Amino acid sequence: MPEVVEHHGVPVLVCEADGVAIADVQDALDHLIGAAFACAEVVAVPSARLDDRFFDLSTGLAGAILQKFANYRLRLVVLGDISHHLSASSA
C-alpha cells in the first residue's frame, strides 16, 4: 500500500517498488494519479515500475503521462537509477 509522507511541508505519495507496472496512461491514472488525487501533491514512483517506453521519449508515453499529472496539478518524481536508460538514449 502506498504511503503518504510529508517532505518539507508537501504531502508525497511514496509508491512501493513491487506495485503494478505503469505501461500506459490509463495505468498512471488508475494507480498513481487516482491514489494521490485527494491526499498528495507529489507522487514518488520507483523507476522499475515504469515501462521502458516511458524513458524512450520518441514513444510519447512520458509526455502523455506527465500531461495527465499537470492536468491534475500533481508532480511526479522518479526514484532510482535510470543510467541504463540514459546511456541508451540518443537525446
Rank of each mutant, 00 (worst) to 15 (best):
P2M: 06
E3T: 14
V4Y: 05
V5Y: 02
V5P: 03
V5S: 07
E6W: 10
H7S: 12
H8Y: 12
P11A: 04
P11T: 01
V12C: 09
V14F: 08
C15N: 09
D18S: 12
G19Y: 02
V20K: 11
V20D: 10
A21T: 10
A23I: 09
D24Q: 00
V25D: 06
A28N: 06
L29D: 08
D30A: 12
H31C: 09
I33C: 05
I33P: 01
A35G: 07
F37M: 12
F37W: 13
A38P: 06
A38I: 08
C39S: 10
E41Q: 12
E41A: 08
E41K: 11
V42E: 06
A44W: 09
A44K: 13
S47R: 14
A48K: 10
R49G: 02
L50G: 01
D51G: 01
D51T: 07
D51H: 15
D52V: 15
R53L: 08
D56Y: 09
D56H: 11
T59F: 01
A62V: 06
A62Q: 09
G63D: 06
G63Q: 06
G63E: 05
I65W: 02
L66C: 14
L66D: 02
F69W: 03
F69R: 02
F69Q: 00
N71L: 14
N71W: 13
N71S: 13
Y72A: 08
Y72V: 05
Y72M: 00
R73G: 00
R73P: 00
L74Y: 02
R75F: 08
L76A: 03
V78G: 00
L79I: 14
G80I: 01
G80V: 04
L86T: 08
A88S: 14
S89N: 13
S90C: 14
S90Y: 13
S90G: 15
